[in-house]
């Protein structure tokens, strides 16, 4: 059971928050620090395919790409994980067997979460049986917005129990929460209820990770850490396709949570096309000329 006072006690001023974002985003990341960041970003990507039309073939291709980002550059890191729908988990899991790349699955009636708790738990158990090493669940936004915080909290707690040691990422779908106050409240609630990671979005609605939302969630993680000593991870997802923005998010993580969080264990990007842009940037940094997407595989 969550403590409602804790949850309600953190207010966010939108204007102040976006001013802080602007200041963070005005950092100028050049030369070595940029290359360091680009490599780091690659290692933090959850390469994602979440389409109704996903096929085993597509998932296999993606898994290959995950471990062979750009073979002309042998020292590149691998991405952190492949994120797929439940029915694709076993395929992904098999394809990634010889790598350190994790298989992540969305679950709990993704993306809307509009099903009952039992069905959600069954789905979680199913994806874990299939080989998922990480579970990305969605919260019940309807219950959250109608004030049934305990319902939402209980559900997360039960999913966490079902996950056991499997890493649980809780998607807040912040685009449906309307205010930063709600984002903060949902972040606190998810962490108190057992989330290992909190994640912004499903990528299935038009508004995905926004900088103010990400900052608000990072601040919630920092405060939770200061209170409990537990390090919760963060995953912005959706709309992050350019390396410049990804670097700005790394600055945000560094200046909010510190260097400790600059690791795939605690920070991920949920993205599908970010990897190629980062690759182009890395090669530009090394070769000195700007790159064309024609030279980078499209998976």
């Amino acid at each position: 059971m969550i403590n409602p006072i804790m949850v309600y006690n953190n207010r966010i001023d939108q204007v102040g928050c976006s001013e802080r974002v602007n200041r963070i985003f005005s950092r100028s990341i050049k030369t070595e620090s940029k290359i360091w960041a680009l490599y780091k970003i690659l290692s933090m990507i959850d390469l994602t395919t979440l389409e109704g039309s996903d096929s085993p073939g597509k998932v296999k291709q993606l898994c290959y790409k995950a471990s062979h980002l750009h073979d002309q550059y042998p020292k590149l890191p691998q991405v952190a994980a492949i994120c797929v729908y439940p029915s694709m988990v076993s395929i992904a899991h098999k394809s990634l067997k010889s790598t350190n790349i994790k298989t992540a699955s969305v679950a709990t009636g993704f993306p809307s979460g509009m099903t009952n708790c039992k069905a959600k738990l069954d789905e979680v158990r199913y994806v874990i049986d299939e080989g998922a090493e990480e579970v990305d669940m969605v919260i019940s936004r309807g219950h959250f917005l109608s004030g049934e915080l305990n319902y939402v909290s209980d559900e997360i707690a039960q999913v966490k129990t079902a996950c056991g040691k499997v890493k649980l990422k809780v998607i807040l779908e912040t685009g449906e929460l309307n205010t930063l106050d709600n984002v903060r409240m949902a972040s606190d609630l998810a962490m108190e209820s057992g989330a290992d990671f909190i994640k912004t979005s499903t990528g299935k609605i038009s508004e995905s990770a926004t900088p103010t939302v990400v900052l608000t969630m990072l601040e919630a993680i920092r405060d939770y850490y200061n209170k409990t000593g537990k390090k919760i991870g963060m995953k912005p997802a959706g709309g992050i396709s350019k390396s410049k923005l990804a670097i700005q998010y790394l600055v945000m993580v560094k200046e909010t949570l510190g260097n400790d969080w600059l690791t795939p264990n605690l920070f991920r990007f949920g993205a599908s096309s970010l990897a190629n842009d980062v690759l182009m940037q890395i090669i530009k940094q090394n070769k000195g000329n700007y790159q064309s997407s024609n030279y980078f595989s499209l998976d």
């Binding site: 050049k30 260097n259 600059l262």
Partner: peptide
């Protein structure tokens, strides 16, 4: 524990000069 963790992390990220 915290300070150990800091040592273990590969390296801390410092911004290069941006004059």
């Amino acid at each position: 524990e915290n300070s150990k963790a800091k040592k273990n992390s590969s390296m801390s990220w410092k911004y290069s000069n941006a004059l």
